[in-house]
């Protein structure tokens, strides 16, 4: 199958489970918005792919509000859909069947693995951690930040099929004026032996925290060694802001908070509108995961801390004084 420039832009639907039912993750709506912009250049349609049973039906109305015309509902037989090589083959099958021009997915570790294999399977060019994607002179052009958010690069994908992994908060999600009624297309994909050489012997999904997901939150309040293990001030401020809670590796290594809260080069990369770091020195490994944030606030008792080099608003002070006072003032301003 060929991949003409006006072939569909296919978006992988990421989900989480809410009350036992699959639900779209918010960054998917941003992806659908970007996909529409990309598709507009060639008059291509926007399609969606669901790998989770029940997701296609559960998400149909919502993706319709974002202009999707076809939802590909994929089953993989007795293969395990959680294995990323299996997801890669499912995506390859849909991209080929639909004659896709581009595949878009969120930039998670799992999707990076699936995209890398998809690239090997299809010959597609792959760019991860994108902050934007357009078409220029016929080519898909992707922007991304590198070197801990200190540089922006733009690169063209020169293959007929382009695979782009987009970071959360790249664009605001915008529904279409006139919702579509997407058609569902079923695909039963036969997965190769090569994709099943490793077996998933156990999988435990993490219970939801009730707070926004770190990777996709609009605001994040993070704590480091300076909390000395007491995250209550960090959590209080996060909750008045509706923010996610993050941490440095020191805090996760100490067991003060789960490893999934680690922000940085070996943890979660975030780019929220607002990042507040408290009791965090701003080591290069941590900065690599948050420096692309919109507004950076730092609260640290040491004026020499490197985090102040990148802070828009820095407070030299004790986090146990500053954070509760800020939370109280925000409550007061809200009335």
């Amino acid at each position: 199958m060929t991949h003409p420039a006006d072939g569909p832009v296919v978006v992988l639907l990421d989900h989480h489970t809410v009350d036992g039912a699959p639900r779209l993750r918010p960054p998917v709506l941003e992806l659908l918005t970007l996909a529409r912009g990309l598709a507009r250049h060639t008059g291509a349609p926007v399609h969606a792919v669901a790998l989770e049973p029940g997701l296609a039906a559960a998400a149909a109305d919502e993706v319709g509000r974002y202009g999707v015309t076809v939802v590909h509902d994929v089953t993989v037989g007795d293969a395990d859909r959680h294995l990323t090589p299996v997801a890669a083959e499912a995506l390859a099958a849909v991209a080929s069947r639909a004659g896709a021009s581009a595949v878009l997915a969120t930039s998670t570790f799992e999707n990076k693995e699936a995209a890398a294999r998809l690239g090997v399977l299809t010959g597609a060019g792959v760019v991860s951690d994108a902050t934007g994607v357009t078409r220029e002179d016929g080519e898909v052009v992707v922007s991304k930040t590198v070197f801990a958010g200190t540089w922006t690069t733009r690169c063209a994908i020169t293959t007929p099929l382009a695979v782009v992994l987009v970071k959360a908060n790249a664009v605001p999600a915008e529904p279409v004026d006139a919702p579509t009624e997407p058609r569902t297309e079923g695909h039963a994909v036969t997965v190769s032996a090569g994709a099943r050489r490793a077996t998933l012997t156990g999988r435990t999904e993490r219970a939801a925290t009730g707070r926004p997901e770190l990777a996709e939150a609009q605001a994040v309040v993070a704590g480091g060694r300076g909390t000395n293990g007491d995250f209550s001030a960090v959590e209080e401020l996060a909750d008045v802001l509706g923010a996610a809670v993050g941490a440095t590796r020191v805090a996760t290594d100490e067991g003060w908070i789960g490893h999934e809260a680690q922000i940085g080069q070996t943890g979660v990369t975030i780019s929220p509108q607002l990042y507040i770091g408290a009791g965090i020195s701003g080591a290069v490994h941590h900065r690599g995961g948050m420096q692309a944030s919109g507004t950076i606030v730092a609260v640290n008792s040491d004026p020499e801390s490197p985090i102040f080099e990148i802070a828009d608003f820095g407070v030299v002070g004790d986090l146990f004084d500053v954070l509760p006072q800020a939370a109280a003032e925000i409550r007061r301003l809200r009335g």
Binding site: V297, V299, P303, F308, A311, D312, F313, G314, V315, V316, G317, D318, D321, V322, L323, P324, Q325, A326, A327, A328, E329, I330, L333
Partner: peptide, 14 residues
């Protein structure tokens, strides 16, 4: 902006 807490920094941050 870089300020040193004089007892009002939390309010100013908000």
């Amino acid at each position: 902006v870089l300020i040193t807490d004089d007892g009002t920094a939390g309010t100013r941050l908000a």
